[in-house]
Every structure is written in C-alpha cells, then in structure tokens.
Simulated assay, not measured.
Amino acid sequence: MYQDVHVMMVIGFGFLMTFLKRHGFGSVGFNFLLTCFVIQWSILVNGWFGLIGTGAGRILIDIKSLLEADFAVATVLISFGAVLGVVSPVQLIMMATIEVVCYNISIYVGIVQFQATDIGGSMFIHAFGAYFGLAVARVLYKKSQTNSRKEGSEYHSDIFAMIGTLFLWLYWPSFNAAPGNGTERHRAVINTVLSLAACTVVTFALSAVTDKKNKLDMVHIQNATLAGGVAMGASADLLVQPFGALLIGSSAAVVSTLGFRYLQPLLQRTIKLHDTCGVHNLHGMPGVLGAVISAIIAAVANKAAYQDSYHELFKNTLRTPGQNGGFQIAALVVVLAIAISTGTITGLLLKLQVWDNLTAVELFEDEVFWECPQAESDDEDTNDEREVLAGKSTATASA
C-alpha cells in the first residue's frame, strides 16, 4: 500500500496537472522535484513533532514514517495545483518548506490534542492543502492570470492528464486504507471503492446535464470523478454501510462538478481567486464535506457495533459519541484557520522579489525554465514574448 501511495504522488498528481498546453514539463517535473524534497523534509519535521512529549532523542524511520512523508507530499502537491504555472521553482520550494511545518501543527492540534479521526486525510491533507494553496494563490494573484490564452488545454494534453486521473482513481483505496490495520483497513478499501464508483457515474451524468449541448466536459472527468475518494477519507474506516459510501461518493460528485461548472468562475470574477487546477472543487469542498460526514457518523457511532475492533474513535473513554462528533468539527475549524492564515502569510512572503516572481508573459510557460523543442509554427506566440522568454532563460542559466 505504501508503494501504491508513492505511485499516486509521482504519476497520479504529476500527470493530472499536464492539462496546460504549454506547461507539461513544469507540471510533471516540478511535481517530481517537490515530491523528492518534501519526502526528506517531512521525515524530519514529522519526526520532530512525533518526539514531543516522548523523551526520545531519535527519529526512527520505517514504512510508517515513509507513508506519513508521502501524506505530507500530497498536501503540498494539492497546494501546488492552486498556483500551477504562476510560481517559480524557488517559490515552490519555499512554499513547501513552510507548509510542511504548518501541516504538522494542524495534525498535532487535531489528532493529538482533539483526538479526531481522519484516516484518509479529508481534513488534514485535502482541506488543509487546498485552502493553504488557495490563500497563497489569492495573495499572488495578478490581473494577467485572467483569461490567459496559455492557460487552456489541448486534445493531447487532456489525454495525458487522464493518465494521472486513472492512476489516482485506481490507487485511492490504498491511500485511504494504508494507515489502518485489520478490519479498519479492510473496511476503508471497500468504502473507498464504492464511493469512487458512485462518484464517477454521477459526475458523468452531471457533466452532460449541466452542458447546453449535453456534452461531457473533460475537466469534470479528470477531477470530479476523484472527489469521492476525498470525501470518503475521514470516515473510510467507520461503519458507514455500502449505501452510505455510495451516497458520500454521489454527494462529492455533485459538489465537485457544480463547483467546476459554476463556483470557480464566480470566485475568480468576484474575489480574484485564481485556482489553476480547481483544487477547491476537488480537494477543498469535498474535504470539508468528508469532515462533516465523519462528524455525523461519529456522533451516532455505537462502540458495540465495532465488535472487537479497537477503533481510534473510542480511544477516549470519557467522551460520548456526540462529543466525538463535536471534536471532528472542531478539528475541521482548526485546520481551516491554520491553512488560510499561514497560507496568506506564505503568499505575502513569496511576493518578495528575491524569490524570482514570474512576469505576465512567463505565466503558464515551460520555456522559462526548460529547454523546449520548438514547433514548426506557433501562431499564439509573439516575437516580443519570445525575446522576453529567451532573456529570462539566459538570466536563469547565468544565475
């Protein structure tokens, strides 16, 4: 299961972001760079937080710590999606360095102090990564990002992005189940498969229904079909029953698809929130939905129904089921507060010119940082853009 999650980070997230027609190298390449950097950094930071109150003096590395490192990677890559194509590699490394620390703070408060349950990371991975990235994106917003002709996709770039979708869809049960053991892990796999299946069917239906010509939108199929895995995360190992898993996946599809169709353009138009990959629709809102659902399930949970399984939900014997549900909501509030506040601060820091901010013509463009084979004809590029990009490449090489 660890290797399944590993595949999701490098291939799943990497190819999911290749829909931009002029930013494929940056999508896969910087995703690879961030993954390798965050694995190393998060082993240290996760380990430091794990030593709190233990009296131990060493960070022990095992499969569990590597899995937790990949969860930190997922959080950063979700944030990366919100600012894809509008930040430099230096800014990405700085963002990741800060975010891993903030991510651990939210986990320490939510998991250690509040004793919330979130096996698949609906709150602590998806919601945190989404709203941290959105806060950064809002602060870094430039007017030139709106209606950029290079932000769109092409036929072949969307096919590449579907590779990422399919890998994520296939391995998501492992992502939600890997931290569990025994019965909980078994239940998490089943619940996630059912949720993803229902989510996919409803997404196809809604995508066609909401289109004037009743045609499918590839953006919805690439992204909203995965929302069932996000929403199922917080309650994947709980007794939701098969019909519950199907309802959760269906609800996530509705929230995500309608978010892509209506809410994302509205937010960009009204509050200047530019979200390149639509992480608010795939990770943010479904993550919040998953947290709320987990609170409801926790509030009605019956310990006897879990038989001999010692679930994390019942580790605090002084709490009533209603209190467990309340602490799930409290953990969600903490996650959102930490993500938005620290993301805003990080965005302000990244605006400093020392971090190699991109100019208007450099947005969504691989040629700024990569050696790119040139097409025989490219009518969309002007000579001025070519000159600016060539100058940037020379300056980067000199530095």
Results as ranks from 00 to 15, higher is better:
Val136Gln: 10
Lys150His: 12
Ala177His: 09
Ile159Phe: 09
Asn176Gln: 06
Ser174Gly: 15
His126Pro: 02
Ala130Pro: 04
Phe114Asn: 12
Ser157Lys: 03
Pro173Ala: 00
Asp118Phe: 07
Ser148Tyr: 10
Glu151Phe: 15
Gly164Ile: 04
Gly152Gln: 06
Phe114Pro: 13
Ala135Asp: 07
Leu168Gln: 02
Val139Ser: 06
Trp172Gln: 02
Ile159Ala: 10
Ile119Arg: 13
Asp158Val: 00
Ala177Ile: 05
Ser153Asn: 11
Thr117Arg: 11
Ser144Lys: 14
Arg149Gly: 04
Tyr155Gly: 06
Ala135Arg: 14
Tyr141Pro: 12
Ile111Val: 14
Gly120Tyr: 07
Ser157Gly: 01
Ala130Glu: 06
Ile111His: 15
Gln113Leu: 15
Gly133Ala: 04
Phe132Thr: 00
Ala116Lys: 09
Leu168Thr: 03
Phe175Lys: 11
Val136Arg: 15
Tyr141Trp: 06
Glu154Ser: 14
Arg138Ala: 04
Ile163Phe: 15
Lys143Asn: 08
Ile119Cys: 09
Leu140Gly: 02
Tyr131Phe: 15
Gly121Ile: 00
Thr146Ala: 13
Ser174Tyr: 03
Phe175Arg: 08
Val112Ala: 05
Ala161Arg: 05
Gly133Met: 09
Phe132His: 05
His156Tyr: 14
Gly121Asp: 00
His156Pro: 15
Gln115Glu: 13
Ala127Met: 14
Val112Lys: 06
Glu154Arg: 10
Ser174Thr: 05
Phe124Asn: 14
Trp169Gln: 02
Ala116Cys: 06
Pro173Ile: 01
Ser157Arg: 02
Trp169His: 06
Asp118Gln: 08
Arg149His: 05
Gly133Ser: 05
Ser122Trp: 03
Trp169Lys: 00
Ser174Asn: 05
Arg149Met: 07
Asn147Gly: 10
Trp169Ala: 03
Ile111Ser: 14
Gly129Ile: 00
Gly164Asn: 03
Thr117Tyr: 07
Gln115Gly: 08
Glu151Pro: 08
Gly129Tyr: 02
Phe124Cys: 05
Thr117Gln: 14
Phe124Thr: 07
Arg138Ser: 10
Gly120Ser: 10
Gly129Pro: 08
Tyr155Ser: 12
Ile159Thr: 08
Met123Cys: 11
Asn147Tyr: 13
Val112Arg: 06
Gly164His: 10
Gly129Trp: 04
Gly152Leu: 06
Leu134Lys: 03
Ser148His: 13
Tyr141Glu: 12
Tyr141Gln: 01
Ala130Leu: 08
Thr165Lys: 07
Leu134Ala: 06
His126Val: 01
Ile163Gln: 10
Gln115His: 07
Trp169Leu: 02
Lys150Thr: 04
Arg138Lys: 13
Ala177Lys: 13
Ser153Lys: 10
Leu166Met: 11
Ile111Glu: 14
Val139Gly: 07
Ala161Ser: 13
Gly129Asn: 05
Trp172Ser: 09
Gln113Gly: 00
Leu134Ile: 03
Ser148Lys: 12
Phe160Thr: 03
Val136Pro: 15
